[in-house]
């Protein structure tokens, strides 16, 4: 399990570097899918199976739409990939930076207080994400309500921005 966790974390870091380094949106969104898959594996290793699967499902759908829009909007016949010099340079730069951070955090140990709260779930009967869900629907229902209101507001804002043939604000340019 530790090995899988390490692989997933490695894919996350390397993939996020690639997401940032890619100038073309196609590969950005595709790499983001890989990264989200790795992040879900990390979540599963931590015990949040349901959370991970639902996040994977939602993220896949979202990135699919992003990819469809980029193919529809950006007519880039020869998109830059990691094999091009510039992109590779940037990616190497980001990887170097994250390596420095890693060394600084683990070997040198500059950041204090990194003894994380991760071992306090050991004696629970349910999985942690199930417990959090139960809490969300009972004690902190107001939080759920506000979250739902926020999502509704976002939906209406997006519709307001993009509606109509000519009056939609985003098409005024």
């Amino acid at each position: 399990m530790t090995f899988i966790m390490y692989i997933a974390l490695l894919v996350m870091v390397v993939g996020l570097g690639a997401v940032v380094a890619h100038p073309s949106p196609y590969f950005g969104s595709l790499t983001l899918v890989v990264v989200s898959g790795a992040a879900c594996v990390v979540l599963i290793v931590y015990g949040g199976t349901f959370l991970a699967l639902v996040m994977f499902l939602v993220y896949l759908g979202g990135m699919l739409v992003v990819f469809a829009y980029t193919t529809a909007l950006a007519a880039d016949s020869f998109p830059y990939t990691l094999t091009y010099g510039d992109v590779m340079l940037y990616w190497t730069l980001y990887m170097g930076l994250s390596l420095i951070c890693y060394v600084k955090c683990t070997v040198v140990g500059v950041v204090e207080g990194w003894d994380l709260f991760e071992n306090w779930e050991e004696f629970g009967i349910f999985e942690s994400d199930v417990r959090g869900m139960a809490l969300m629907y009972s004690d902190v229902g107001s939080l759920l309500l506000i979250g739902g209101w926020m999502l509704l507001l976002t939906l209406i804002a997006v519709l307001e921005l993009c509606r109509g043939n000519s009056r939609g604000a985003l098409r005024a340019v």
Partner: peptide, 16 residues
């Protein structure tokens, strides 16, 4: 445990 959810997630992956 989450077999149905797993299948749903991967069937959406197959469109990729």
């Amino acid at each position: 445990n989450m077999g149905m959810l797993f299948i749903l997630a991967f069937s959406s992956l197959s469109v990729y």
